[in-house]
Design a protein around this nucleic acid. Structure first.
Lengths: 305, 305
DNA sequence: CTTGCATCATACCCGGCGGGTATCGGGCGG
DNA sequence: CCGCCCGATACCCGCCGGGTATGATGCAAG
């Protein structure tokens, strides 16, 4: 049996007239008669009572009528849904990001995607860089937002934003009001760094900075993520070096201060597997590129003004 | 889209290998590739990730996979059900019969049909001859069991059984013990006849009998059906002339006695519209024919012994 | 009763499409 | 680097579905 049979049958069942049904189907009447006859032969059942003038459905015909309607409706909705998913306008996008990106521009980017593709179910989670890498490779996620990047040439990448590093200090610390602060001035402070595992990590980047400035922090406190680092700062356990965007969310007991000297900054990258050409991913990365470009234009404008 | 696309897609989705899927479908691999490509083009969606070695379903593919499975399963069950109904082994048969047929051989016939076609839903009802005729013509029923027949050459008919008429008397009537009773002996009794409407009817057949015997019943009582006639007999309201099979069910206060003289008997006919070639009807009438033949053989055997 | 019309079935032809074989192209393993 | 595996492409052929013409049948009107 083919869908043609069902479509033709449905037309005849609804018109109860071969001529009109054929017109509705945009074919001539004879092939329609033939196809219906073939269907009846295949099913071994008479579907229509061809009695004098008016045509009528048999019991088997009534039964097939209901089934055919449902099957064709089902097919139609399947087709529509698949088209939508195939166009990336429905379905699901699994995105994970480093915790320190939950402030700053990433939320705007995600909002933008949500607005453009409201029917796509966004599955969000947070991971550190190592976990992001593993999840991308194992296809547990479609898109990763890493800081600053993931080393893998199997990934497509878009740079989302670059930002300076900044100090997070306990608000009642005397350092908070000092002008022209340098990293070396903090040599005898407790540095709260993250993540604790795996190494090397962002913590080592900061330690490298210190070494470049000619010292090693007197005390180190390693914590899991930037959230707990800030928490520790707020209770006076030490200071931390964080991306500037973190300063957007003020927190009691914490003040943010720039420092003098070498500031390599940090960035956010949006990554996906090279072989993942899913429209959702493509759309998200396109949006990312446009968004990053508009951010750069803003910065340039602000810089020149 | 055609079912071929769904079937091919399903094979590939389950094998995740074009070669094996083609083998399973008993076609060569190239046309399979082409059909899948055509399906993807029509849906505007990539369904498979053809990445290095292992093939994989995309999100759109996963979605279509579920839909395709259900649609094909649905089609399969539709086909099976329609075949059954078309073969008359499932579905519904609407049968109506005169009340006086609820004793005697009709129940056996119906039992026989039930045993042969257990999945067919039998819709039974009782009507008088006039109602049977109307119902058949208007297609409210498929098969009618009338006594003795319906006058209409648009009907196909099988004679189910013929039987003598018999008297139903009040058990304490002196007539009950009289030998060699003749209808004329009952001229001064109350004749309870049916149906009251419409006329002419079975009541007129009995009145014709009396006339032939040279008398008119002194008193007449017309009632709706044979059930109420027997009830009236049982309370001593008079006597009735009924088909012999009615005597099979004994009832307190009623005795059945044969009578001498002309006995035209009566019969049951099984009727259906000539243009109703539904397998259910055909089966039922076939069964009726065989059943009637076996009844006739029984009678002949009993007669000769 | 006969003619004409409406409607579905049959006869026959044609072209498109689905399937076949041969071959290519790329990725992976030896 | 070569050969193999697998999917894609190229090209041909035969079938089947659709078209036109016509038949068969039942009904209505004259």
């Amino acid at each position: 049996m083919e869908l043609r049979h069902l479509r033709y049958f449905l037309a005849v069942a609804e018109e109860l007239h071969f001529g009109r049904a054929a017109a509705r189907l945009d074919i001539a009447q004879p092939p329609l008669s033939r196809q219906i006859a073939a269907l009846e032969a295949e099913l071994g059942a008479t579907l229509f009572d061809r009695g004098r003038g008016a045509i009528r459905l048999t019991q088997a015909g009534e039964l097939l009528h209901e089934h055919a309607r449902e099957i064709l409706a089902r097919l139609d909705s399947a087709s529509r849904e698949v088209r939508l998913v195939g166009a990336g306008r429905a379905g699901r996008l699994r995105l994970a990001f480093v915790g320190s990106a939950s402030h700053g521009v990433l939320p705007q980017l995600i909002q933008g995607y949500r607005a453009a593709y409201p029917e796509v179910d966004l599955a969000l989670s947070t991971m550190n860089n190592a976990e992001l890498h593993r999840a991308l490779v194992q296809r547990d996620i479609d898109v990763a937002v890493a800081r600053p990047d993931l080393e893998d040439d199997e990934f497509r990448r878009e740079t989302l934003v670059r930002e300076d590093l900044i100090l997070a200090l306990t608000s009642d610390s005397p350092l908070a009001s000092r002008e022209g602060l340098r990293l070396a001035d903090l040599a005898d402070q407790t540095f709260i760094l993250y993540p604790r595992r795996p190494r090397p990590s962002y913590a080592d980047v900061v330690l490298g900075l210190c070494e470049r400035e000619g010292f090693q922090p007197k005390r180190l406190e390693l914590t899991q993520d930037f959230q707990s680092a800030i928490s520790l700062v707020s209770v006076g356990a030490g200071l931390s070096v964080v991306p500037q965007s973190v300063a957007q969310t003020q927190r009691p007991g914490v003040v943010y201060r720039p420092y003098q000297g070498f500031n390599p900054g940090t960035g956010l990258s949006v990554l996906s597997r090279l072989d993942n050409r899913s429209p959702h991913v493509v759309h998200f990365l396109d949006l990312t590129r446009r968004f990053a470009r508009s951010l750069a234009a803003q910065d340039a404008g602000r810089g020149s003004s």
